[in-house]
Design a binder for these strands. Structure first.
Lengths: 131, 131
DNA sequence: TGGATATACGTTATAGTATAACATAGCGCA
DNA sequence: TGCGCTATGTTATACTATAACGTATATCCA
């Protein structure tokens, strides 16, 4: 069951599909539940393997502070903004910010490999709802 | 067993002591092991309760990307820099950077409550060791 | 004084997140 | 055909975190 490079397997595309259909990040076990609805018996490694492959392909990322996963389409750049009321997540572009942090660390001799920037709070829509 | 505000209980000061003695963040269960060495039977809630109190007191913080805990040195730094080789963690102050991100989000109507910024890579010392 | 309340901790059990290890199956190709 | 590769299945277990309930001690104040 070899797989052409750049294409998704069935597991992977199902997991990605569920993540893209959701309006908030999903935990691995929420995904597992969906997969079991779709297909019957599915075990955790099936989901975790798909998540790993999708993450390596740059199609999803883990939201560390939520222990959950989101498609990069909703979260693309470096800064992830999370509304604790409605659960939605979006990416904010802040190239200058990331750049200056990078410079700063390089100057201190630190070789940066991976950045996680997550901001929690309440989005404008939810603030209005409570106004 | 009420506790004067601002003072640490025995559990809390033992947990904090272990974290300060370590040269890298520790997981809750590593701490649990140390506590058991010190005192015999100790259960997870004892450790987690101490961690929660210490975090609320601003004395430690959870390193999300490591699922581990580290003491906070004096000022609460905005950016946590983690060496994946030696495991050490340090805080970097970057007030301008955080400020500009904050402005940016306020402009979009987002009310920020909590930020997590963690950078992984290799520190200068470890780069030298491998040179 | 004594009882209502609050806080910390003990204890048991369980929920939630993630991976190790080994087995099976399909595919490309020498 | 038989070998090696990759994806998936399957079982078990490790690791992280919290719920729920019980006990002890301190504090407040009627």
């Amino acid at each position: 069951m070899a797989q052409a490079a750049g294409e998704l397997t069935l597991n992977q595309s199902q997991v990605l599909g569920h993540l893209r259909a959701a309006n908030a990040p999903m935990t691995a076990y929420q995904l597992l539940g969906r997969m079991q609805n779709d297909r019957g018996a599915v075990a955790p490694p099936t989901v975790y393997r798909a998540l790993k492959a999708l993450e390596e392909a740059g199609l999803i990322r883990r939201i560390e502070t939520l222990r959950a996963w989101a498609p990069v389409a909703t979260v693309r750049p470096g800064v992830v903004v999370i509304c604790d009321d409605c659960g939605t997540v979006r990416g904010v572009e802040a190239p200058g910010l990331l750049e200056s942090l990078h410079e700063r660390l390089v100057a201190e001799g630190f070789a940066e490999a991976r950045k996680t920037i997550e901001v929690h709070g309440r989005c404008g829509d939810c603030a209005e709802d409570r106004a």
